[in-house]
Amino acid sequence: MATLKDIYDIIKELRSLAKEIQNQEVSALVADIQDKYFDLKEELESIKDENKELKEKLSQKEDIVLNEFGFYVKKSENSKHVFCPYCYNKDDQLCLLERDNNEFYCKNCNQYFINRG
């Protein structure tokens, strides 16, 4: 499978040949190919970044579970913190709940939840 470097090397060789034969049409086509190459390379980098971001989100989602009291917790934190079920279900947003006596409160959505644990 050709790599981007292989393709770029071919473009450089074509550009050199176009200069050698002094053909303006071929030179223009090579320049156009080179522009398309750089656009494609930039798009590929963007896709790689997006892919990395999505993998991180997926990994994070796998760490989030619903505990027996209906709150979201991170398995990796051994349920030290509880997160708002409303915000997580609505926007996939992890909003830490604050404890207020026998209730939990979410500053993001202003919801109160009774601690049944």
Rank of each mutant, 00 (worst) to 15 (best):
Y37R: 00
K41A: 12
D6G: 02
D39G: 00
T3E: 04
E53K: 06
E68P: 05
K12F: 11
D6N: 12
S16N: 10
V65Q: 09
K41M: 05
M1L: 12
E42Y: 07
E53N: 11
E20Y: 10
R15L: 08
E13C: 14
A2N: 12
L58T: 12
D9Q: 08
K75M: 04
I64Q: 04
N23V: 11
K61G: 01
V73H: 00
Q24A: 14
L4A: 12
K41I: 05
S27R: 14
G70T: 05
K36W: 01
L44E: 11
K55W: 10
G70P: 04
D63M: 01
A2H: 08
E42R: 08
I21N: 03
E62S: 05
E68G: 10
D49G: 09
L66N: 05
I64D: 02
A18S: 11
N78L: 06
S46F: 10
E56Q: 06
N23Q: 15
N67C: 05
E77T: 12
S76H: 09
I33A: 08
R15G: 11
I11K: 02
I47C: 07
K74L: 14
L14W: 13
A2I: 14
M1H: 09
R15E: 12
D32K: 13
E13I: 12
G70Q: 02
S46E: 13
N67K: 04
A28Y: 08
K19A: 11
E45T: 05
I21W: 01
D6V: 01
S76A: 12
E50L: 10
A31E: 00
K55Q: 14
N67R: 00
Y72A: 05
S76T: 13
E20W: 02
L44Y: 06
S59Q: 09
K5A: 06
L44I: 13
V65L: 04
E53S: 06
N67W: 02
Q60S: 12
D39W: 00
L44F: 08
I11L: 14
N23K: 15
N51P: 00
Q60L: 15
N67E: 03
K61V: 01
F69N: 09
T3W: 02
F69M: 04
M1S: 14
N67Y: 08
Q34T: 10
R15Y: 09
N78F: 13
Y8R: 12
S76Q: 13
E77Y: 00
K74E: 13
L17E: 12
L40T: 11
K41T: 08
T3V: 04
D63V: 04
V73K: 00
R15P: 01
S46L: 09
A28M: 06
D9M: 00
E50D: 08
L58G: 15
